[in-house]
Every structure is written in structure tokens, then in C-alpha cells.
Design a protein around this nucleic acid. Structure first.
Length: 552
RNA sequence: UGCCCGAUAGUAUAAAGGUAGUACGACGGUUUUUGGUACCGUUUGUCUAGGUUCGAAUCCUGGUCGGGCAACCA
């Protein structure tokens, strides 16, 4: 392939650094999730960026858990994050934890205290907030700011030793209370939390804040390019300040715009609410934008990587249309999914001139997109078939290429039939459609000379298996639920899940393989749900087929 | 109203002072035993006002609009 994609701005930076020999030709990135929730498609963008960059330039990527807030974090999340990153197809160099550096971080804090650049503050959170001033007014120093190095050293050691209750004291960096950048107004470095940590247990009762953990962790690992999202831009001067004062490895932070997808929400907090309030089944509900939800829905790792490649990387806020995600999964599945027939909304069709007790076996290929079709399977055919209710109309409009009295269609991989009549039940619903078939129109051996415009799918009544089929639609009714008035949950789409308890499926689908995508011909792509069993098959619709037929 | 970031078709994303291009979407057509796929075509864009320049999406200045920052969250 000579196709050359232009570089995104971060790749440009990396190439410049590589050329100038800034890090000796080394590229080391990191993916640093906090283990307080499940990964979502937005994280996938970051994962693809970080791992992709390292891969492209012969570097490596660490997986680092930013676990500095024990009250929000859990091993359940650690495990799911590792599973999701692996599933996406990436291998990390080292699995690391900010909590691994608690000792080192403590020592670094002591260094700053000794340099007179950090102090213990006894103020309450409220007092500190007031003293920080506002964006338009500078902050004011308090009495604690001028404590002696010795006193600070002692107090900080006492904090660590557990002599104070939560909130009694904090360690702050002495930077600039008048800075126009609020992040520099003596930011907190450590707070007291007598809380159990999922890795360090009860060893610590003081925990470093993000600003005194993230950059230092980057530096300890000698990360070359620390990539994060836009909201951390104001933190960058502080990131650099700590590194400079400490004289440690100069990792550099770069920021890109996070992914926003329309008709969903992307914050862990909101996703957690949906789970806790039972608006969805769990974090891996197929309607969720989580990696695990997309996986259960039938998305493939390749399709998500392709999506992340296509959306690009820049610094401006964006709102990506879900239709692009859908395009990516269709593109992948079209080439790989085996075709099968399933009737979701059945109506019976009887072929009046086909022998009642006859069963015929018809061949149908697995995948027309591949040379040779990747083999195929035998389809039993009889005089009674299930077809899709909307493939018949009592009064078909002009360009309706399906059934209606007098109209002809081909039954996929079988015969051409002609609709002769139909019957209704007491409620006036079509109950049965009567057709005749053209014996010499058999698929592959058609000598009838008849050309029909439409082909429909079908399942033989006596040979049909059944399955529950779940159809999903967008989770929200509006493009940007977070930006609407009131609570975002008011904008949930009440029809985001439609369950079809009994669909008729061709026999071979009883052997469907978990994790594999199937195309139900003319209906979309489907995959087995995790709750599917041999006794009760359950299929999730991953995505519909693109529908070029607009009614009327 | 302090500081910071940003603004290119409907949505994203290129063009590093020199032809505004690509993808998705939409629309139309050809092919088709999936109204799918494939292929072809059409459509719509540089926030604004100045300035620098032979030449500006790009550089400069002002404005407008969007976003971020004052958590013992990350």
C-alpha cells in the first residue's frame, strides 16, 4: 500500500522528537485509566492512540492504573480494563500501578518540603477554597504557608503515621497563589484518607492527588509522550513545575480532544447511573458505549480500531455521528459474517403445487463476499415456509419488489414463486399466503427464463428452529443528552430494546459459535448473546443492514 | 468578567504562505439470487473585520462563538 495518511499533530511531535534525538529515539507511552469503572469507546480512542503511536514508531506502551483514590476504585474494574485492552488487540509492556510508587512519591514530597516548596496546611477544604480566590481575584496566603521546613517535615510524617483524622491536614505545593492559572494556586499534593486500598490495603492513610502522582509516575517510568485529554491543559504548567523542581525525568504532556458520540453519554459517572438505576442490564448491556457492551453487541476489535483510526486526532471538540461506527462494523462483518436465514416477524406461506410430504435439500453458500463462498450448508425446503410479514402487501405500491397477489419473487437459494392468494384471520390480519412455484427455476439450475426483481429469505416450517432475538436502537432520543435541560436520563429512548421472543431460524444457526458474527440475510448482523444456551438461543442484533429502500 | 484551548461541507479530518482534498452521511445511477455488497456520479465548506504578502484556511491584530479552569476526583 502506498496510501499515505497524513500525520495527526501528535505523530508530528513524535517524529520531530525522533529526528532531534530528544529521547535517544525512544518512544514510550502509557494508557493510564483509573480503575473506577468500565472502559468505553472514548477510552478506545486513547488506547488506539497510545498503543498505535508506540507501535508505529517502534516503541512500547505501559498499562498503568491511576489508583490514587481508594474509595472509588476496585479490582473488579482492574480486571475488566485488562480484559478490554487485550480484547482490543493490544499488548502492554508493563502492568503498573501508581500505588506501586507510593513510597517513592512520599520521598519526592519530602524533597519538595526540604526545598521549601511544599507545606502542611491545617485549613478546611472550605477555607482553602476561599483562600484560593477566584479567576479574577488572586488568592491569599494563610498562616500555615510560612511554616518552617522542620515543622512541615514533622507534620507530614505525622500525617503518614496516622496521627490525624481525614481532612485535618493536607500537603500543598508552594507555587503561586496569585497565578492566573487556578491550578498553580498552591495545589494539594496529599490528603488524609483512612481508607482501604485495593492493592496497598491499610498500609497508607495519606494518598497523593492526581497532580502529584500522574506526572511523577510518568517520570518514574520514563514515559516520553504522556497523552491525555483537553481538560488537563491547565494542569500542564504544574506537571512541568513538579518535574523541574524535582529534577526528574522530563516526560512531556500532550492533549487531544476526547471522543463524543451522539445519542449516548460518555462519562463514567453517567454510565454508572444507568447501571445503578437499572436503565440497562449492566455495564456490558449491548446498548452501552462500553467496550464490553460493544463486544456483547457483536462489534469486533478490528471495527473499533478502524473507527478510532477514521475519527482522527485533533484538539477541537467534536461530536462523532454513530453512523460512522455503524459503517465500520458493517464494513468488517460484510467480509467475515456467514449468511444465514432467519424470519423475525413470521407469516406462513404455502406452495400449493409443491408435494405436501416432500423435503428437498438446497445448497446455499456461507459468504458471497469471498471467492468460493467459504463453503455453505444445506437448507431443507418444503411446501410450507415462514417468510417476513412485511414481504407481503395486500395492495403493493408501484415499486414493491416483493409479494402481493400476482407478483413473483425468488426465494433465496430456492425457487421463483408467484403469489396467487391469501387468507386472513378474524382480526383481519394476513394469516397465510398461497403461492405456486416454478419447478424449473431452481437456484443454480434456472432454465425458466423468468427474471424477478426481488429475492426474499425464508425458513421451512417443519424444519425451523426458534430463538429469542433482541433488537437494539440508540439509547437516547436526542443527540447530546448531557446538553439538554434537566436530567439526562429523561432523554432515554424507551424503545432502545425490542425483544422478539420467538423468531424462526434456519437449523444451522443452532450451531452458532459464540463471539462470531452472522448476517441474517436482509435483516442485519447478529451474534449470540452471552446468556444464550443450547435450550434457548438468544441473538443480539449488532447493526441493521444499510437500507436503501425508502418506502413510498 | 482573569487565564487557557479551539473554530475548514451535515459530521469528522487533511492542506506546514501557492489547485481547499479525503472519509462517513445525503441524493442519483450501474451491477446484483440480500432494496445488502461493489462500482460510478452529484451535493454542500475555510466564524468575522482588518492587516502583512505577488499570493492567506495557514502569519499578525481586534471581535464573535464554543469549550476548559476556582474537587481533600481523575
Amino acid at each position: 500500500m502506498s496510501e499515505e495518511r497524513s500525520l495527526n499533530f501528535i505523530e508530528e511531535i513524535v517524529e520531530e522528537d525522533l529526528q532531534s534525538g530528544k529521547y535517544g529515539g525512544r518512544v514510550l507511552t502509557r494508557f493510564p485509566p483509573e480503575p473506577n469503572g468500565y472502559l468505553h469507546i472514548g477510552h478506545a480512542k486513547s488506547i488506539c492512540l497510545n498503543f498505535g503511536l508506540a507501535h508505529k514508531y517502534g516503541g512500547k506502551t505501559n498499562l498503568r492504573f491511576d489508583d490514587t483514590n481508594p474509595v472509588k476504585e476496585d479490582v473488579e474494574y482492574v480486571d475488566s480494563i485488562k480484559e478490554d485492552v487485550k480484547w482490543l488487540g493490544f499488548d502492554w509492556a508493563d502492568e503498573l500501578y501508581a500505588s506501586d510508587y507510593f513510597d517513592t512519591l512520599y520521598d519526592l514530597a519530602v524533597i519538595l518540603i526540604k526545598k521549601g516548596l511544599a507545606y502542611v496546611d491545617d485549613s478546611t477544604a472550605e477555607e482553602i477554597a476561599v483562600q484560593k480566590g477566584t479567576p479574577t481575584e488572586p488568592g491569599t496566603p494563610n498562616q500555615y504557608r510560612s511554616r518552617s521546613v522542620e515543622k512541615n517535615l514533622q507534620l507530614f510524617a505525622d500525617m503518614k503515621a496516622g496521627k490525624y483524622p481525614d481532612g485535618a491536614k493536607v500537603l500543598r505545593a508552594k507555587v503561586d497563589l496569585a497565578s492566573p492559572n487556578m491550578q498553580l494556586r498552591d495545589p494539594l499534593m496529599y490528603r488524609i484518607k483512612h481508607a482501604h486500598h485495593h492493592r496497598t490495603g491499610d498500609q497508607w492513610c495519606i494518598y497523593p492527588m492526581y497532580d502529584f502522582a500522574h506526572g511523577q509516575s510518568d517520570s518514574i517510568e520514563e514515559i516520553t509522550h504522556s497523552i491525555c485529554t483537553l481538560e488537563f491543559i491547565p494542569h500542564r504548567p504544574l506537571y512541568d513545575w513538579f518535574i523541574e523542581q524535582l529534577g526528574i525525568f522530563p516526560s512531556k504532556q500532550y492533549e487531544f480532544a476526547r471522543l463524543n458520540l451522539n445519542y449516548t453519554v460518555m462519562s463514567k459517572r453517567k454510565l454508572l447511573q444507568l447501571v445503578e438505576d437499572n436503565h440497562v442490564e449492566d455495564w456490558d448491556d449491548p446498548r452501552m458505549p462500553t467496550i464490553s457492551g460493544l463486544r456483547r453487541r457483536g462489534y469486533t476489535p478490528a471495527s473499533i480500531r478502524d473507527f478510532c483510526e477514521r475519527i482522527g486526532v485533533a484538539k477541537r471538540e467534536n461530536m462523532i455521528d454513530v453512523s460512522l461506527l455503524e459503517f465500520c462494523i458493517r464494513e468488517d462483518l460484510n467480509k467475515t459474517a456467514w449468511r444465514r436465514m432467519a424470519v423475525l416477524d413470521p407469516v406462513k406461506l404455502v406452495i400449493t403445487n409443491y408435494p405436501i410430504d416432500k423435503t428437498e435439500s438446497l445448497f446455499s453458500e456461507n459468504n458471497p463476499e469471498v471467492e468460493g463462498g467459504e463453503g455453505g450448508r444445506e437448507l431443507p425446503f418444503s411446501n410450507e415456509l415462514w417468510i417476513e410479514r412485511d414481504d407481503f402487501m395486500e395492495e403493493p405500491p408501484k415499486k414493491f419488489f416483493r409479494l402481493g397477489v400476482g407478483l413473483m419473487v425468488r426465494l433465496k437459494s430456492a425457487y421463483i414463486i408467484k403469489c396467487e392468494s391469501f387468507t386472513k384471520d378474524e382480526q383481519g390480519n394476513v394469516k397465510e399466503i398461497q403461492c405456486t412455484y416454478i419447478p424449473d427455476s431452481k437456484s443454480g439450475h434456472d432454465t425458466s427464463g423468468i427474471n424477478v426483481k426481488g429475492t426474499i429469505h425464508w425458513v421451512s416450517v417443519p424444519h425451523a428452529h426458534t430463538a429469542e432475538v433482541r433488537l437494539y436502537d440508540r439509547l437516547f432520543r436526542v443527540e447530546d443528552p448531557s446538553n439538554e435541560d434537566g436530567d439526562f436520563k429523561e432523554y432515554l429512548n424507551p424503545d432502545s430494546l425490542q425483544i422478539i421472543p420467538k423468531a424462526y431460524i434456519e437449523a444451522d444457526l443452532a450451531n452458532a459459535i459464540p463471539g462470531k458474527g452472522y448476517q441474517f440475510i436482509r435483516k442485519g448482523y447478529f451474534t449470540l448473546d452471552k446468556h444464550s444456551t443450547a435450550g434457548k438461543l438468544v441473538f443480539n442484533r449488532t447493526v441493521t443492514l444499510k437500507d436503501g429502500w425508502v418506502k413510498k
